[in-house]
Design a protein around this nucleic acid. Structure first.
Length: 353
DNA sequence: CCAGACGTTGTT
DNA sequence: GTCTGG
DNA sequence: CCAGACGTTGTT
DNA sequence: GTCTGG
């Protein structure tokens, strides 16, 4: 797993982390949107910087998280790819986008000193994984079925690199064995914190000790109360420089669908709107969704965890049955007339005009 | 002792 | 920073 | 579209 | 040159 950072919900929409009974005291850093979907990419060849995500952290006195009181829950934008506090430079040869749960439990090593002191939860819509099908690699997206944000168990650190006065905050995502339901896709899965209790346990570093409860959290995902959904998404999600809300939606097989769109990217065209208008391209130089725009849209932030976005209408979308272990079955996907009532016209997906 | 690793996924 | 291999 | 591979065995 | 993965 590495990172796509630009798909995301407006920051105010996650201020209270719908679905979790916690309330962050502050946002640290200036991003307007919560980057959302996690996926593997080639960070060295392509300029994806700053690859920032927004983990939830409990502040510590030594963190100096912009003067937040100790133990305050804060959302702090950090860079993906953990740089240990003792690093003097960013070592590109060190691959720290993930931390294997097994390695955490071994003790020692790189994670030994960090696992009891700096745990965080990474906020995202969900994560990508590529299904290897012969030579082909097909991207799948996994998220909570109820549409709420996903929290991934992570570790973070603060490093002072040579020649810099500013601390560099970075994080990694903990992975574990994929559970049975998802092993057809990949053998690993991020550790997903699906309950308030799990979140609080993971974020509580006050004892500076590891516990059996923490070990339990690292087990393969198994929360019948919070099922996940997994479905194929457009291959273009893997292409650097592209961005679209369809990247976290099931692929449509329609002739005039995304395939046609990508075949002729430069030509501006309108599409039957298939996306919730609540995502927005980050730092786009032109309006992300044509004339309509979303900036003036009022977003309701309620304690009610349901209905936080449009894909919750699961009745309208046919998903892959992920409980079926056969990789050949995820074939019949289609978008129904879902969200056809939306009035937004999408004329410029990529802001490249 | 001291230099060098410390890490993970999957074609980076 | 701390551990390990040479 | 367009950059990059164009090959294999076998697990760095 | 042509295929293909992103």
């Amino acid at each position: 797993m590495c990172g796509r950072y630009s798909l995301g919900r407006p920051r105010n929409e996650v201020q209270e982390l719908p679905g979790y009974n916690v309330q962050p005291a502050a946002w640290i850093a200036e991003d307007q949107f919560v980057p959302s979907a996690m996926y593997p990419t080639q960070q060295t060849r392509h300029n994806i910087a700053p690859r920032s995500f927004a983990p939830v952290v409990r502040s510590r006195e030594s963190d100096e998280l912009q003067n937040q009181p100790p133990d305050a829950l804060v959302i702090h934008t950090m860079k993906w790819g953990l740089v240990p506090h003792w690093s003097k430079y960013e070592d590109a040869s060190l691959s720290t986008t993930n931390a294997r749960a097994e390695k955490l439990l071994e003790g020692g090593g790189m994670w030994g000193s960090i696992k009891t002191k700096r745990r965080c939860a990474v906020i995202c819509e969900g994560y990508y994984e590529w299904l290897k099908k012969g030579k082909e690699r097909l991207p799948y997206f996994t998220r909570h079925k109820d549409g709420r944000l996903m929290l991934l168990a992570g570790l973070y650190d603060r490093a002072f690199l040579e020649g810099s006065n500013e601390p560099l905050w970075t994080f990694t995502v903990v992975t574990t064995d994929a559970n049975k339901e998802f092993s057809w896709l990949h053998d690993r899965q991020p550790v997903i914190l699906s309950t308030t209790e799990a979140l609080n346990t993971w974020l509580d570093t006050s004892s500076d000790r590891w516990s059996p409860e923490l070990t339990n959290l690292l087990d393969s995902y198994n929360d019948p109360d919070s099922p996940l959904v997994c479905y194929q998404v457009p291959k273009e999600v893997g292409k650097v420089g592209t961005e679209s809300p369809t990247f976290i939606q099931p692929i449509a097989e329609r002739k005039d669908g995304i395939a046609a769109m990508f075949a002729n990217q430069r030509k501006a065209r309108s599409l039957p709107p298939t996306s919730p208008a609540k995502m927005k391209r980050k730092r786009s130089s032109s309006p992300p969704y044509g004339t309509g725009g979303v900036s003036d849209e009022k977003v309701k932030v309620g304690k009610e965890a349901r209905k936080v976005n449009a894909w919750e209408d699961d009745d309208e979308i046919e998903y892959v049955d992920t409980s079926n272990p056969s990789p050949s079955s995820p074939k019949k996907q289609k978008l129904e007339k879902a969200e056809s009532s939306s009035k937004n016209k999408i004329t410029d997906f990529f802001g490249k005009s």
